[in-house]
Computed example of a mutant assay.
Amino acid sequence: MDATIAPLFCSGGGCTAKLGPRALSRVLSQLPAPTDPDLLVGFASSDDAAVLRLTDDLAVVSTLDFFPPVVADPYTFGQIAAANAMSDVWAMGGRVRTALNIVAFDEDGDLNQLGAILAGGAERVAAAGASLAGGHSITGDGVLYGLSVTGTVDPRHLWRNDTPQPGDALVLTKPLGVGIACAAHRLDSAPPGAFEAAVASMTELNLRAAELLQTPHAVTDVTGFGLAGHLLEMLGTDFSATIDTLALPLIPHVRTLAEGFFLTAAAQRNRTHAEANGLVFDRVPFGVQEVLFDAQTSGGLLVAMPRPDADAYVAALADDRAASGTRLAASIIGTVTERAEHTILVR
C-alpha cells in the first residue's frame, strides 16, 4: 500500500455515525439536570445507561442505540446493532430483560432485507436471554436500526463508568480497529481476515465478559468515541492513566491499514477531542495512534479493577471464549494513576 497517498476519510454506518464528543457535550450542557433522587445515573457523567431505583434492591436500566448499516449483509447488521444496544446494560452490571426495535426503512424498498435485519436483531436478543417485545418503525430514505433496551440491576451492585481508583489495571475485553477494518472493506482493500475478525467482534455479546467480572471499580463499553474518548470519560478530572500500546488487542492488519490512511471522519473528531483534553503520546507510531481514536461499533468493555484480580479475569475470559469457540483477544492495557499533568499518557 502506498503510504504517500493523501488521507482517505471513509464515512460509514455503525458507531462512526455518532455525533462527536465535543458537539454532543455542548448540546447536553444546555439540558436541565434531573432532580429525582431515585435517578441514580443520568447523563451528567456520560455513563452508558440511565438507572432508576425502584426499591432498595431493584433498579431499572434504560438505554437505546441505533445507526445506519455498518455491513452490507442485513442479517449481520441486525446482529451487530442489537449486540451494540444491549451492551450498555451489561456495562452497568445489569441484566437485559426486554428490547424494542427502532427502525427506519423505505416502504418501497426490499422488505425481505428489513425482515433479515429484524431477524438478526432477534437472534442476538434471544442469545442474551431477553425478550423482544415490539418496537416502532418509520418510513425513510435511509436505513436505521437499533433497540430500546430495558434491564434490571441491584442498585447496591451498580457499576459506574467514572469511579476508578489509582493503581487499578485497565482491561479491554475486545480488540480495537473495527472501524478501520470496515472502512477498508468498503473500498475492497481489506487484507484477508481483517473484516471477518471485525464482524466476529461486533456480533459477540458482552454478556459473558460482564458475568465473569467480579471486582470492578469502573466499567464502560468502548463505542463511537473510541478507546481514548471513553477512557477520558472514565478518568474525569480526578484521575490519569498510562496506556501500553504493546498490550493493545487489535483486529488483524489494522495498524497497516491506518498507516495507509484508511481513516474515518469520526476517528479524526475523536483525536481532536482527546488531544484537547490531555492525551499525549510518547514515541507512538501513527498507525498505533489511530487505533486509539477509531470509533468502535459494539466494542468491548473497558474495566478499571484491582491489579491482583485483573490477570485472573483475563485468563478466565480467555478460557470461557476458548470453550465456546470464540477467538477474541482481551488484555490488560494500562494503569489508572493519581491526577498528573497529562490525562492519558500513551507509550
Rank of each mutant, 00 (worst) to 15 (best):
M1L: 14
M1I: 01
M1Y: 15
A6L: 13
C10K: 13
P21D: 13
L24F: 15
S29T: 08
S29G: 10
P32G: 09
P37E: 00
A44N: 05
D47A: 10
A49I: 11
D65Q: 08
D65F: 13
F66G: 00
V70Y: 02
V71R: 07
D73E: 07
P74Q: 00
T76G: 06
V103R: 05
F105V: 03
L111V: 13
L118N: 02
G120D: 00
A130T: 09
I138D: 12
G151Y: 15
R160N: 02
D162Q: 08
K174Y: 11
K174D: 04
L176K: 06
L176D: 12
R186Q: 15
P192N: 14
V199N: 05
A200E: 03
M202R: 01
T203L: 01
Q214E: 10
L232M: 08
E233N: 12
E233I: 08
E233G: 01
L235A: 11
I243W: 00
A258F: 02
T264A: 05
T264R: 13
A267K: 08
R269Q: 14
H273K: 02
H273A: 00
L279P: 02
V280R: 03
F286G: 11
L292G: 00
D294P: 03
G299N: 07
A304I: 02
L317N: 03
R321N: 02
R327F: 00
R327A: 04
T337P: 10
A340I: 04
